[in-house]
Structures are given as C-alpha cells and as structure tokens.
Amino acid sequence: MSTETHFNSESNLEKVLKSGQFAFTGELGPPRGTDVEEVKEKAKFLKGNVDAVNITDNQTAVVRMSSWAASLILIQEGLEPNYQMVCRDRNRLAMQADILGGSALGIRNMLCLSGDHQQFGDHPDAMGVFDIDSTQLIAMVKQMRDEGLFLNGNEIHQPPKMFIGAAANPFADPFEWRVHRLAKKIEAGADFIQTQCIYNMPKFREFVRLANEEGLTEKVYILAGVTPMKSVGMARYMKTKVPGMDVPDEIINRLKGVEKDKVAQEGINIACEQIEEFKEMKGVHGVHMMAIEWEHMVPEIAEQAKVLPRPVFS
C-alpha cells in the first residue's frame, strides 16, 4: 500500500487499515438542537463496535449541530470521529479554519464531500457556496497536511494532522466514469474511500474489479457502504426517491417475502451477507455501516457480522 509511507495522522482508523485488518466504521447524525445527551446516547451504541464514526455535516442540507462540535463530543466520550465536511456551506477560508480547529482539538479523520444540494433541505433558498469541489477539498487538506501550506501557498505554523477520506458512488451514472473519478480523488490525495450504500452487488463487484485493474485499490483503502433496510417502504423509497441509489428488485422482493415483524431482521441478514462477501473481496478493506437513525442496532449488527471485537492500539 502506498498509503503506508504517508504522514501518520495518529488516526485509529488509519492504524486499523494499515495493520491490514478489516475496518468497520459507523455513522452518527448530530441533533437538530443543542442536546448533548442525544449525541452521547447514540455514541453509546457505537462505542467499541466501530473504529471511527462519521459525523454528518448538515446532512441532506438540513441544519444540525455543527459536525466538528458533535465530533468533539464524541472524542470526549472516547470514540474517534470521522469529521465530514461538505463544500456546500463553507468557502475556502471557513474550510481551512475548521480543518485547523478540528485538528487542534483532536479530530484525525475527515471525509471530503460535495454535499447534497441545498434545494433538498430545510433552507432551500440558501446560497450554495461550492467555492471548491470535493476533489479540490481533498487536494487542499493534503497540501495543508503534507506540505504545511494553505491553499494560497502561505506557510501553516503547525500543520493539521488528518487521515483524508473521500466518497465514491459506483452506482451513479455514467458508470464507466466512476472509476476515473475515483482515480482523480486518489490522485488528489484521498487515503480512504467510503462508498454510497451498496445494494446492487453485481454492479459493485464490477466497479471493484475495474478499480483493481487500474491499480487503484493498491493506492487507497476502500470501505464498502452498507445500510440495512428497516422496512419494505424504506427500500422502495431508496429505490425511487434517492438520486444515485441503485436498489434491485430482488432486495425488495426478499424483504416482502418474510413476515412483517421479521422484515427488519431480514434487512440485517442481507447486510451481514454483504459484509461476509466484502471481507473476502479483493480491493475492499472494510465496511462503512450507515445505520441511519438505527444506531441502537449497531451492536447487534456488528455481532452478527462477526466484526467484533474491534482492534485496540495502545
């Protein structure tokens, strides 16, 4: 892995991946208010069951507690955050300021995203900033970290330490282009990739095959995105309403095929079968578990997916 020669960010996730172990990350959406207890409550279910927790940044363009603030609460609770940053809400000044602040206070992972368009959110008339895009954000964090330079080329006194993440959606079209876009993000400086929720396994296998062929999986750690379906309604919603999501009918039929009170368990079963396959898949280095508003199920899912116990580094 070329990433092994990279700067050591002191991130736990980085250590897990570099040690060659199968990573397991979780996700937590900050509250729509100031309730610290809500963050702590969700974090309780994730502690010890995941290597790092993605803290979403105004997810779906809905205002929430800022992702760095929620990340700090997680650090206090003894978990490792993966600080998400979207290009929608900040310009390059604010981004760099938040990167410095986050690093100063102990944030060691970042996921660089474009962000859902503000039109989907609770402030649809907001000005979308999009000063730089996600690829450029990755390059900026890398330059800050590795060269100790701000985007304008000025020197940073004590540069930030960050393990740099990026997203990939193998299912959005044009499919042929997705591997090239992944390559661009790697070239920009991504250390790890978390993918969009995977339901269409044949398509994902093809994506990973192409990434292997291009040698990309040697340059970056890929964490496969998994979201267990809670209900048939959720599966249908994901299929028809979420842009860039690919839910095959077999998934829906399989959920429909079980008794109503067993649908959620069937969703978890599907997820665990996927995880079993990812563990064996060349080019996949871990799983990103996005149990949306289902954090309390993570211990059970981790148990069933046989990813416990999580590695501990002294």
């Binding site: 368009h117 997203a167 044009p174 661009k184 842009p243 860039g244």
Partner: peptide, 20 residues
C-alpha cells in the same frame, strides 16, 4: 451544474439528470 463542480459528476447524477 447546480454545484458548480469542476470535477464532476457528483454522486447525485440520476439517469443523466441532476439530483435537483
């Protein structure tokens, strides 16, 4: 591009349409 991307397309591309 609704996000003024210079390195697109983003993950919201939907059968050739924009996510918006």
């Amino acid at each position: 591009c609704a996000k003024r991307l210079l390195n697109g397309p983003c993950g919201g591309t939907n059968k050739g349409s924009c996510e918006i």
